[in-house]
């Protein structure tokens, strides 16, 4: 089971207490009534679904109840860091970038069972 660090509880807690809530840092347009259907679709439905580092909203729903943000790697499922809602994306510039050549074997992502 994954342990996820909740920035409000200030400790790692079991993943069963959490629920994912989609991409983070999606800004609602301030002129929502004026934008075209296509622009609304892009804001509301279209996500990048990248391979590698993503910024997501998570909720400690069976814990403190708070929403927070997480930087997570979609290849390894590793949580790189978590931070409070409302804070800007953390600078993770030297973060490894997933490429097409990333090998996705069980051993590479989970380690060899001991």
């Amino acid at each position: 089971m994954l342990l996820i660090h909740c920035p409000y509880c200030e400790e790692e807690r079991p993943e069963l207490e959490f629920r994912g809530a989609g991409d983070a840092h999606i800004l609602r347009p301030t002129n929502i009534a004026d934008i075209s259907d296509e622009e609304f679709e892009a804001f509301f439905f279209l996500r990048d679904n990248v391979k590698g580092l993503v910024y997501e909203r998570w909720r400690h729903i069976h814990g403190c109840g708070r929403f927070f943000n997480a930087a997570r790697d979609t290849v390894s499922d590793k949580f790189v860091t978590t931070y409070k809602a409302g804070l800007p994306r953390p600078d993770l510039s030297p973060a490894p970038k997933a490429t097409e050549t990333t090998v996705e074997t069980y051993e590479a992502t989970e380690g060899v069972a001991g």
């Binding site: 079991p14 207490e17 403190c64 109840g65």
Partner: peptide, 19 residues
């Protein structure tokens, strides 16, 4: 429950919502 109830993580007086 997956919550850590070991003495150091969950001393007397500790409380948490969990599953």
């Amino acid at each position: 429950s997956p919550h850590d109830l070991s003495a150091s993580a969950f001393p007397v007086g500790a409380c948490a919502r969990t599953v």
